[in-house]
Simulated assay, not measured.
Amino acid sequence: MNYPDEMYLFDFTSGYNPGFVRSKRWGIGRYNEKRAGMYVAAQYCNKRNIHMGIDIWTEAGAPVFSFANGTVAYLQDNNKRGDYGPTIIIAYDLDGTQLFALYGHLSRSSLERWSAGDRVQRGQQIGALGSREENGGWVPHLHFQLSVRDPGEADMPGVVSEERREEALRLYPDPRRILGELYRQEKGPRDPRR
């Protein structure tokens, strides 16, 4: 996959600064990262803070594409503050293995394009990133998450508690399996191309 050269690797282990995130044109938020001060909405119960997807931060309206041929499984607007906002889950069959991919924080118009059961092609645009007003109140970004289990709806726990971490790592594999090596495991802000 091709990514912009100026991709910034965020480190949210010591806090979340929306102004700093907005100052970067493109950025990556890590998988399996224990984040500080980011998940304060009621649904997180002050203990869910381990991130189970990869975030790709950029401007609202940026296109989002399907990584393979698949079928739209679920779509809905998770419109609580701090939630995903418009969300699409696509089911993929990858060499006999079924995977479900959540595309969260989309624009509302992204949901108008699709119905459950629609086929999507590799490289086809499935939506666009939503603005803060429609994506749950976040700086615009895509939350991309994989699941080996059918979630049954257009939702997955994007962050989990420490007690659920090991189970979550089994259910929600590292999205770099699909997206490529966007970053290495080192801590601290780094250029993911190094």
Rank of each mutant, 00 (worst) to 15 (best):
M38S: 01
Q43H: 01
K34T: 15
E167A: 15
I28W: 08
A128G: 02
R48I: 03
H51K: 12
E112M: 12
G82E: 07
F65D: 03
I90L: 02
Y84V: 10
N46Q: 12
D83G: 08
H51Y: 03
R35N: 14
R35H: 05
A42N: 11
R165E: 09
G70Q: 00
E166W: 08
G117E: 09
R35T: 12
D77I: 04
G136F: 06
R48Q: 15
R22T: 04
E186G: 09
E163W: 07
Y92N: 02
R194Y: 01
I126H: 02
P157S: 12
I28A: 12
Y39N: 12
D118E: 04
A168N: 04
E162P: 00
G85I: 05
W57H: 08
W26T: 15
A116L: 00
P189L: 00
K34W: 02
R170D: 10
D95V: 11
D155R: 15
R165V: 12
P189Q: 05
I28Q: 01
Q124T: 10
W114E: 10
G53K: 00
L9F: 00
E112K: 12
M156K: 00
R149H: 14
L9K: 06
A42D: 13
S131L: 13
A41W: 01
P63G: 06
I126C: 07
L102R: 07
F144E: 09
L75R: 10
G180P: 05
G15P: 12
Y84A: 07
N49W: 02
Y84E: 07
F20D: 06
Y84I: 09
E162D: 10
T97M: 09
R190H: 12
H143A: 13
E166G: 03
G27I: 00
I89N: 07
G158N: 07
M38P: 00
Q125A: 13
L102F: 00
H141V: 01
Y44G: 03
K24I: 02
E6V: 02
E6Y: 02
M1R: 09
D55Y: 00
V64C: 11
Q145V: 03
A128P: 09
A168P: 02
M52V: 00
E133G: 13
D95M: 05
Y16Q: 02
L171C: 15
N46T: 11
R30P: 14
Q121W: 07
E181T: 04
L142S: 09
F67C: 10
N46D: 14
L142G: 04
G123K: 00
R190L: 12
F10P: 08
R22N: 04
Q125F: 06
G188N: 10
G104A: 14
S14Q: 15
Q145W: 00
N49M: 05
Q145S: 00
G127P: 14
N49T: 10
A68S: 03
A128K: 08
F144M: 03
Y16H: 05
E112P: 11
P4D: 10
G130V: 14
S107C: 14
L94H: 09
G15E: 14
P4G: 05
S115T: 08
I50W: 09
G53Q: 01
K47D: 14
A168W: 11
D174P: 11
